Amino acid sequence: MQKYIEYIRGFVILLASGLVINETLANDIKASDYPGIGRFPNANIKQYSNASYAKGLLPLTANSYENPSEFKKQKVAGDRTTIIYDVPSDTNATVSEVLYSLEAGLKKQGFDVHLSCLAESQFEECGYFLHQQIVTEKTAKSRFQSFKNFYNLNKATVGMLSATKGAESVWMVVAKSVYSPNIQYAVDVFKQSDLQLKEMVLTSGKIAKDVHESGRAVLSGIYFEYNSATLTEQSDSSMEAIASYVKANANSAFYIVGHTDTKGSYQYNISLSQARADAVKAALVERFKVKGTQLTSVGIGFVSPATENNTDTGRAKNRRVEIVLKL
């Protein structure tokens, strides 16, 4: 018995010391451990998935049978990585050994552990089917597909961990159920980040729709060098769309209107916005063969903002060029 205890203690020390960080075994699929989070010795990766942006919940406490939806939780969003591991049955490990080894590893890596629980049924310290409050059945059957019956776990010994470190939030579920010969565990990590919105590609149809509905259109995809009226090559596809729209409306005339944010003086921004409007008109006429008589360039600085100027996002929206129907 003493040898067995020392053997298990060795497992814990091995993980906590970081010696199994980023281990890759022959039975792994083509994937690696999440950086800075170790794996239980001899565990194999069975599933790996990543999403550049997702939203979720991090449980901070367990729930109860009486109020399953009532528990402390934290909303998380950002890059999401989910890894499913198998601990082969011939390791003779237990759920508690795996759970507490993982917990020791997280603490060694500087994570703050919020929830750590072990239960023989769903009515014990891990709450009442807590995992069903964290992920939907659809998500369980896809993102946790290789974790046998992850969504149910009604015939299992279950352990759970939740922890945070800086921008990273980790939720782990360890289980030995009747549905798998092995212990399995899931590592679900959110790395906080903002959603990177993609700018819509400007088309002549989009310009036509906006001008028809409101008499003007924001010319997205027009880029200038910093504090300059020099157009960049990134603007070419949008310039082609603008030229196509103006040529298709040969009997109409338009204003090309430059706008800025509120950084700098009024006169400076009037000059900058005028120079940028002039640059767009000049490029349309000289490079894209639009009739100059159809276009009048105007710079109005920051006197007609699209939104507030007290955030980076707002100022970016205010720095724009528009096309306005003249007649």
Rank of each mutant, 00 (worst) to 15 (best):
P35I: 02
E70L: 11
G314V: 05
K317W: 14
P305E: 02
G166Y: 08
R216Q: 12
E6L: 03
A275D: 06
S252N: 14
A31Q: 12
E213N: 11
Q132D: 02
A51M: 08
V12P: 00
G299L: 02
I29S: 06
V12G: 05
N309E: 12
D86C: 04
A283M: 02
V87W: 02
N249Q: 14
Y223C: 06
A62L: 02
L325W: 01
S162L: 01
K176N: 08
K75P: 01
L118R: 00
A186R: 01
H131L: 11
Q2P: 00
I270A: 05
N154P: 00
Q184A: 09
N269M: 10
L58G: 07
V170T: 09
L295A: 04
S238P: 08
N227Q: 15
R80E: 10
N42H: 15
H259T: 09
N154L: 00
A316Q: 12
G56A: 05
I5M: 05
K108W: 06
N318S: 11
Q234P: 00
F254H: 14
K138G: 05
E240D: 11
M172S: 15
Q2Y: 10
N22C: 05
L153C: 06
V187K: 08
E213Q: 15
G166I: 09
K198T: 14
V280W: 05
M1I: 13
A283V: 03
T136I: 00
F123Q: 07
I256S: 03
K176F: 06
V135K: 07
E97F: 01
S121I: 04
L202T: 09
K206G: 08
F147Y: 06
G264Y: 09
V170E: 02
L327N: 11
V20S: 15
A282P: 00
L219G: 05
A229T: 07
T296I: 14
I5Q: 07
D278L: 10
Y255N: 04
Q132L: 04
F302A: 13
R276H: 10
W171T: 15
L197V: 07
F288C: 01
Y53S: 04
E308R: 13
S17E: 15
Y223N: 13
S237A: 15
Q133C: 05
L202H: 11
T293Y: 10
Y226G: 08
I84F: 04
G159N: 10
A26W: 13
D194I: 09
D112A: 14
G205L: 13
P181I: 14
L272S: 08
D236K: 13
T313E: 11
N44G: 08
P88C: 07
Q47R: 07
